[in-house]
Amino acid sequence: MCQRGERQAFEVLVRRYMKRAYQIAFDFTRDGEEAKDLSQEAFLRAYSQIRHFDQRSTFYTWFYRIVVNLCIDHLRRRARIPWERLDGKNQQSAGEEAMGDTSSTPDQEAIAGEVKRRLGTALGTLPGKQRTAFLLRNHHGLSITEIAKVMQTTEGTVRVHLHRAVAALRQSLAELV
């Protein structure tokens, strides 16, 4: 057995999933530095625990579960979530485009900015499971079936979480004029 070979093989998985892992962690924490640490920690855990990976299932639902659990544990320990940073200002980025299209008027931009701010706040106050279901579906495009695997619950429960999350987010925009 060649340890170096195993690690090289795992590095293929790292290259493939690092952006997604980072983005999930960022969606949960809204903090670039924490997202980096948490997503890297998830890879280290996956590497150490790969014997628990059931080959019949897909790697990423197993791996996403590790990422999500780490994020949830981390948020439990952290007092405040800077959810208002929905625009990801803390995420170092070069040449990122502003939200909305370039032809929008200042008024439209102001409204869009307010919408984003409220959504960010509302996202931060969602119960953990609703938020997880919502982030995985809305931000990461996982199917209901995949989310159920990640969250180890039924598809019906995921649907309910998702619906409630969307309803709460929509409610947060209710009085917006």
Binding site: Y22, Q23, L86, G88, Q91, Q92, S93, A94, G95, E96, M99, A112, V115, K116, L119, G120, L123, N138, H139, V166, L169, R170, L173
Partner: peptide, 16 residues
């Protein structure tokens, strides 16, 4: 409404 506001929450930024 869903079509209008839900995409606003999910806009991953490209990192260098």
């Amino acid at each position: 409404e869903l079509q209008t506001f839900l995409p606003l929450t999910a806009k991953p930024k490209e990192l260098p």
